[in-house]
Design a protein around this nucleic acid. Sequence first.
DNA 1: ATATCGATTATCT
DNA 2: GATAATCGATATG
Length: 231
Amino acid sequence: MKLRPLARSFFSRDPRLVARELLGKLLIRNRGRNVLAGRIVEVEAYLGEDDPAAHAAAGMTERNRVLFGPPGHAYVYFIYGQYFCLNVSCQPQGKAGCVLIRALEPLAGLEEMARARGLTNGARRESFGGARLQSCRSRIGEQAALAAEVNLTGKRKLTTGPGRLCQAMGITRARDNGKDLTSPRSSLWLADDGFRPRRILRTPRVGINRAARRLLRFVIADNYFASGKNG
DNA sequence: ATATCGATTATCT
DNA sequence: GATAATCGATATG
């Protein structure tokens, strides 16, 4: 399947539209020979200065200035003393707004991700593949299939959650804040592989106090890798 | 299965 | 000095 980068114009719109349409797209990390990739399955829209929950609400500061710059760039911030979160700037230059990427379905570089997340201990180490799960079911039987599902559970811990996915892909403020996400030559970029979500859910945003009732979280319905419920 | 809590620091008031 | 767009561990039903 061919990968198409997302154009600058894709991001130069209302964050609610961008959020909805980012579902199903790919986030790709190029690190020399290594490629880490995941499909976006959960996002949140943060509007401009009229959204009290947005970092842009109080106007431009040193931290959030990427939000006021050109669309399609990474806004990475540090939170709770230990995690990073990745956003994509939206709206034309001068107008703030962004989409927070909250969960990925991991597709490539899972061993690397597990290492970055500190999940390489013991039984979780091996066998992340879906193909292997199929083969377990047919060849080895129920016992092994059960073991493979344990691995699937582990797989969910790689990139479900905004802090986790940044850790898995090595995304930090120092490395990635302000980076252009529309170019395949960038070490971090967004792509369309033709996938379209079947059904999309809207819910309140997670972990905020202000404007807590607005339905600005978008999730691919029934996706195993979205945060919250289990698969 | 749900609830609560501690970690740890850049950023803003 | 208080807060925070989180996570993982622990406690409890």
